[in-house]
Design a protein around this nucleic acid. Structure first.
Ligand SMILES: [Mn+2]
Ligand SMILES: [Mn+2]
Ligand SMILES: [Zn+2]
Ligand SMILES: [Zn+2]
Lengths: 139, 139
DNA sequence: TTCTAGTTTAGAATTATTATAAACTAAATA
DNA sequence: TATTTAGTTTATAATAATTCTAAACTAGAA
């Protein structure tokens, strides 16, 4: 899973966003970003996995705070898909998703895999903020 | 607002779904369906408006129960758009939406107004359940 | 009219999230 | 290096949306 230890990189990155490189934040960076593939998660799953594997204990409040800070800083993307829980994505590029209603899992769809050949104008005075498609799938 | 009193029709409709035509359910039917345009709402807004206008007092628990029952019966459609609140729609036809992040309001986009000229195959063993697009807009 | 299963209701419980405030720590300053 | 301070972490409380519970009520069958 772990690609390598990009510790110094994360320290820089955090500092550049005015976030102090605390051991909790670095642990979370390591867990989220030292991997090959996109990682989709909820706060609940992240909390469990971090405190299962990780060497540093991180409180739930800090998980919430950090996920919010990382989202604001642009390290994570929030995916609005589920009614009651927030999903986050380490893939911050614009892209689409399959959302499996059964397993509640997201899968990336590359931006080029969906072509919207006709899209309506937004109501006047409004701009399109985001046009990412979530395709709901099931067995 | 009110088109007319379709009371008998609602009684039939409810019976056909094995739902007893109680005065609360008929009041909610009247409020939701006796109107010209699509109505988008949350349980919170529905509860306020029903108990503001309506002649019958309806408890919050009943609003929840009824919205769930009507959704299961196919009278309403749930629109997954917001992180913390469920939205419902009286337009049960397949169609798309603008979602205004500022006002938290949904607007219909007719199905034909969006053309998806390229869509990926779902993972094997899975079927596409729903392909309705929510376009997020803001000022 | 009586009976019964379905329904409504107030309020409790649950779940996800956000707020609070005290203890802790990174890092700037003396 | 020691001191200071602002940012951070944490346990815990508060809040918001929703679901559960169980008692009272009611539609409609018998
Ligand atoms: Mn919530
Ligand atoms: Mn909820
Ligand atoms: Zn993704
Ligand atoms: Zn609609």
């Amino acid at each position: 899973m772990i690609i390598n230890n990009n510790l110094k990189m994360y320290v820089k990155k955090l500092r550049s966003s005015n976030l102090r490189p605390t051991k909790q934040r670095l642990e979370i960076c390591h867990f989220l970003f030292d991997r090959k593939k996109t990682f989709h998660f909820t706060v609940e799953t992240l909390n469990k996995k971090i405190n299962m594997n990780g060497s540093t204990k991180v409180s739930l409040a800090t998980i919430y705070n950090t996920v919010e800070a990382f989202t604001k800083a642009g390290y994570l993307k929030e995916i609005l898909t589920s009614k009651n829980k927030s999903f986050y994505d380490t893939n911050i590029k614009s892209h689409h998703h399959f959302y499996d209603e059964g397993s509640k899992e997201l899968t990336d769809i590359h931006y080029s895999q969906i072509k919207l050949s006709k899209v309506p104008m937004p109501p006047k005075g409004k701009k399109i903020k985001n046009l990412e498609v979530v395709i709901r799938i099931q067995k």
